[in-house]
Design a protein around this nucleic acid. Structure first.
Length: 499
RNA sequence: GCCCCCAUCGUCUAGUGGACUAGGACACCACCCUUUCAAGGUGGCGACGCGGAUUCGAAUUCCGCUGGGGGCACCA
């Protein structure tokens, strides 16, 4: 047994897949499942397949497919086989693989391990409801499994469309040896005869997934916990098809802060929402990897390669994890701070433009040093720098009054600031700081008192980026004009009559 | 109703019978630094769900309970 075999529990070449259904955006939970598959493949030098399970004709859309692919790419999860890249086992859209499913159904039908079911959906729904109210199991009652030839012919004569059901074993048990959960046993009497092909000739999920995983030679099925209960049925289908059963690993689900399954109700649940609100893909990647997996007792921040190198299924937790936005925010901030300034500027630009700020790369680059360690998300930058781009600011003039000062004193101080700045030889940070600190001393004010007044005057805010950098970037002309306006506002406050 | 999964600080987790007065991170609180806000530093608060059993010894093994989640579709 090779090392890899011991670790992956299987001697076949590693081939895993992520198989989303294109009925919406890529959900955070789905992204984590995709990530774990991808990491597993990359760690063992295997193949990562992307397959689109679009057999739900009502809900599947092309837009969803496009959105999922772009979210995957944004996260950096490249697929070796799948849409747009092709591969040995194409096509990778299930609706283009119908002949494969039909052949497989025939094969099972021929063996007598499946049968036609003529029950209509209305009948099924009614019976299920009745069973539930009477406290019986809601599963299919198997009546068509025992149809006589004559009865079947009668239904055919009625022109009823038949679905195909799989004949599950009635007794014994089916064992799932899960790589994360260990051995899980299911009594076969619990498994009902599921539909494997709908009356319209389209396979159901539980069947298509097995057929494709066989055909695509998937060695490990890493998927969400919610599929564990489906697994024994799928194992029976593998066996009926005479194929080796892959190894299974059921990853726990991701919960919202209220400990229910994460969904739109919890705010952003789609990966694209996170992208749009300014999270970095590298932070998201790191964060998602840590949801249910940990390297050791202290490491939080890891590069993509470190994670690939360290990721093993044995360290994946079986317990569900709550998605903590607080921690994501923190981690995103860490990644924002490690970005090279030019890089951060590049990423910031679209967010500022989207907010309606008329800016350009060069300006943003000058702003970056002032805000890099002050933002967690890229979109946070907007509130921090918008005043640079606005000609008219509106703020409460009372904010111009310095701490523990009167309006009149503040006005006097601001006038002195105006004079001093007007005479200052250069408008660089160092000069500004020296000059203004000296002034504060002269006025017998604390630095914070004076700087606070100036801050409000030039930014309109109590909280803003560092003052001297701000003044310098703003430039003498704009800074003085803002100070002048502030003086007027303060003067009104001191003596409203004198307008 | 039946079946299955899960269970360590508020949250993410480390922990695979003794090294645990249970470690780290986020969040929170305090202090330091400081022109505001951040960032950074230091410190603090804070958990093995409950009950049995096994064992010299249990967060770690077993059983039950409780709680949470998932499944039982001609959805995936």
């Amino acid at each position: 047994m090779s090392d890899d075999t011991r670790m992956t529990g299987d001697s076949r070449p590693v081939r895993v897949r992520f198989a989303p259904s294109p009925t919406g955006y890529l959900h955070v939970g789905g992204a984590r499942t995709a990530l774990f598959n991808w990491l597993f493949a990359r760690h063992y030098g295997g193949v990562f397949v992307l397959r689109i399970e679009d057999t739900d004709r009502l809900r599947s859309t092309e837009e969803s497919t496009g959105g999922i692919l772009s979210s995957m790419r944004w996260l950096g999860l490249d697929w070796d086989e799948g849409p747009e890249v092709g591969g040995e086992y194409e096509p990778y859209f299930q609706m283009q693989r119908l002949p494969f499913y039909r052949a497989a159904v025939e094969q099972i039908l021929d063996q007598g391990k499946a049968y036609y079911c003529y029950c209509t959906q209305q009948e099924l729904v009614a019976r299920r409801k009745a069973a539930l109210t009477e406290g019986r199991a809601p599963g299919y009652d198997r009546r068509c499994r025992y149809l006589s030839r004559r009865e079947a012919a009668a239904f055919e004569a009625e022109n009823r469309k038949a679905a195909v059901r799989f004949a599950m074993p009635l007794e014994g048990e089916t064992i799932v040896d899960d790589l994360i959960r260990g051995r899980v046993r299911f009594a076969n009497e619990q498994l009902d005869d599921l539909v494997i092909m709908k009356a319209d000739g389209i396979p159901t999920y539980n069947f298509a997934v097995v057929v494709d995983d066989i055909l695509m030679k998937i060695s490990h099925v890493i998927r969400a916990d919610e599929h564990l209960a489906n697994t024994p049925r799928q194992i029976r289908i593998y066996e009926a098809l005479g194929s080796p059963v892959p190894r299974f690993a059921h990853v726990s689900m991701i919960l919202g802060e209220d400990r229910t399954k994460l969904s739109k109700r919890h705010g952003a649940a789609s990966l694209s929402d996170y992208r749009d609100s300014g999270y970095l893909p590298e932070a998201m990647f790191n964060f998602l990897a840590l949801l249910g997996w940990a390297y050791d007792d202290k490491t939080e921040i890891m590069t993509r390669n470190q994670i690939i190198e360290r990721f093993i299924l044995e360290k994946v937790s079986p317990a569900p994890a709550v998605f903590s936005k607080d921690k994501l925010d923190w981690m995103n901030g860490v990644y924002v701070r490690t970005l090279r300034p030019e890089e951060l500027g590049t990423r910031l630009l679209p967010f500022l433009e989207k907010a309606g700020l008329r800016t350009d790369k060069e300006t943003v680059l000058r702003l970056v040093p002032l805000i890099q360690e002050r933002i967690k998300r890229l979109s946070d930058a907007v509130d921090l720098v918008d005043f640079f781009f606005q000609d008219e600011m509106s703020y409460d003039p009372r904010l111009l009054i310095g701490k523990n000062m009167e309006a009149a004193d503040s006005l006097d101080a601001l006038k002195r600031v105006h004079e001093v700045l007007d005479r200052v030889p250069t408008f660089d940070e160092e000069t500004l700081e020296r000059t203004l600190r000296d002034l504060a001393k002269q006025l017998e004010l604390k630095a914070g008192q004076l700087f606070g007044i100036i801050r409000v005057a030039v930014t309109g805010k109590m909280v803003a980026p560092p003052l001297f950098g701000t003044l310098s970037i703003l430039g003498k002309e704009r800074a003085l004009s803002r100070i002048w306006k502030a003086e007027k506002a303060l003067a009104d406050l001191v003596d409203p009559e004198k307008m």
